[in-house]
């Protein structure tokens, strides 16, 4: 993810900006949130410790955290939007864009590293032609890493969706992915 909006190369004095007019844009959240979101939000109303839990529930339900959803959370639960964004970008687990049909997580923990997980990752990057945290153009696979899933005795480990695969090699990993259902990118 790039956070730059412009990238000046040099230090030093700058011109005063020429401003575009500031216009009232209307309330972007004039519509009520979709019922499933409302349901999650209303269950956590008034919980001062609820933010991360709410975000986790929304991501479990919708697969990722969309900007509009986060705006609803901010408005309806009273958490500052900047804080929500700060939280979402702090934790690895949260996604701001929709993932592919299958989330493939290569364990990069120590035991898996010692058992060659770097090779698996490199191989998947090469074969799928995507980087970490990216999704294949057909929307089938999203490649991710995970710090350790606690199945270290079965290193190297690859997690696909909610299934954990142990004793993986680059070839075995590719075979596993090939055997996954769905190929027509129906999840967009």
């Amino acid at each position: 993810m790039s956070f730059d909006s412009s990238a000046p190369a040099d230090a030093g004095p700058r011109e005063r900006p020429r401003l575009r007019k500031f216009a009232y844009r209307g309330d972007p959240l004039a519509e009520p949130p979709p019922p499933e979101l409302s349901e999650i939000i209303s269950r956590h109303r008034g919980e001062r410790d609820g933010l991360i839990t709410v975000l986790e529930e929304i991501q479990r339900r919708f697969g990722y955290l969309g900007e509009r959803q986060l705006r609803y959370v901010a408005r309806d639960l009273g958490f500052p939007l900047a804080r929500i964004y700060g939280v979402v970008t702090f934790y690895n687990w949260f996604l701001l864009t929709p993932p592919g049909l299958h989330q493939v997580k290569v364990c990069r923990g120590t035991a898996c590293h010692v058992n060659g997980s770097a090779l698996i990752l490199d191989r998947l990057i090469a074969e799928l032609a995507i980087g970490v945290d990216e999704t294949t153009p057909d929307g089938r696979l999203t490649l991710q890493t995970v710090a350790c899933v606690g199945a270290c005795s079965l290193a190297a480990v690859v997690v696909v969706g909610s299934d954990t695969y142990g004793r993986m090699s680059p070839e075995e990993a590719l075979r596993t992915l090939a055997a996954l259902p769905g190929g027509d990118g129906d999840s967009g």
Binding site: D49, L55, V87, W93, A147
Partner: peptide
């Protein structure tokens, strides 16, 4: 939600508080 540092006790508490 996936942050090693949250095992550290003060970070863990911030995380529980939703930060």
């Amino acid at each position: 939600a996936g942050a090693f540092v949250c095992g550290e006790e003060t970070a863990l508490m911030r995380s529980i508080e939703g930060h």
